[in-house]
């Protein structure tokens, strides 16, 4: 028989807590005023009906293609930056660089974890707004704005993967006289390469979506075109752009699935 848990830790209390929280959040909605704009229902209907069919004229498809490539190039550039920053910080945060009983270990791990945590806790669009205010509107601002939080996420996960490698091969390496550096390069890294690669790929997928919404601060790409089309009430163009975004993400998802499979099977 399992021991009874105190009330504050029981699953029933959790369910009550969650339901209560949602009920509380409903009080934040202004129920007294009409929820829809005047004519809001009609524009929602227009929006839906514009799907049949989406705008597929060759001229607009070209715009779509250009916007998609724009978004993709920002995503690719920022994921490079994220790996370049996140990987060294992640290795430091995992504590694999120094021997387990070194006095440097704790400060090194804590400081790199702190940096990773800070850049991660601010959303990429907030970074973008701040960077555009600081250094002006340019692809550079977009790449840095995306690269920083993604470096934080990648670094943290890299550190976790590096920590989770089985200990036995590492002990064998160490007892054969390998330095921490050699243990890292010939022990830890080869063991978790598939995980590292597939997680980076997954984050690349996410960065495409993020790059698309960066247009909100004025960076060109799919989101920017969506904003323009919405402004002109051309809903069928909005649908085309949304479908294009869906297609890219699905394509990358398919690709990364194949890569993951082949890495796991080999």
């Amino acid at each position: 028989m399992r021991p009874a848990r105190p009330l504050l830790e029981s699953p029933h209390f959790l369910s009550l807590l969650l339901l209560g929280a949602v009920a509380w959040s409903l009080t934040g909605v202004a129920w007294g005023e009409p929820l829809l704009h005047t004519g809001g229902g009609d524009s929602a209907l227009d929006m839906l009906l514009a799907l049949f069919p989406p705008d597929l004229s060759p001229a607009f498809l070209l715009v779509c293609l250009q916007a998609a490539w724009h978004t993709l190039s920002i995503a690719l550039a920022s994921i490079t930056l994220a790996v370049l920053i996140g990987f060294p910080l992640g290795v430091m945060a995992s504590g694999a660089l120094v021997s387990p009983d070194s006095r440097l270990r704790a400060p090194l791990m804590l400081s790199s974890r702190f940096v990773l945590g800070t850049v991660r806790s601010i959303h990429e669009l907030v970074w973008a707004v701040l960077l555009v205010a600081a250094i002006g509107l340019s692809p550079l601002a977009a790449i840095v704005a995306l690269g920083l939080p993604y470096a934080g996420i990648l670094g943290r996960i890299y550190a976790e993967f590096l920590e989770d490698t089985p200990e036995e091969p590492l002990t064998a390496l160490r007892s054969a006289g390998a330095s921490s550096w050699q243990t890292l390069v010939f022990g830890r890294l080869p063991m978790c390469t598939p995980d590292l690669v597939s997680y980076t790929f997954y984050r690349f997928e996410c960065s495409i979506r993020s790059a698309a919404i960066l247009s909100f601060v004025g960076i060109r790409g799919i989101g920017y075109e969506i904003q323009l089309s919405l402004g002109d009430l051309l809903f069928s163009q909005v649908w085309t752009l949304l479908l294009a975004l869906l297609a890219i993400v699905a394509l990358v998802d398919f690709w990364s699935g194949r890569v993951r499979q082949s890495l796991l099977e080999s």
Binding site: V29, A30, E33, P34, L35, L36, H37, G40, G41, S43, A44, M47, I226, Q227, L230, V238
Partner: peptide, 10 residues
């Protein structure tokens, strides 16, 4: 962006 088209702000 799509939803603010028909729902009141809040």
């Amino acid at each position: 962006m799509l939803i603010v088209f028909f729902l009141s702000p809040g």
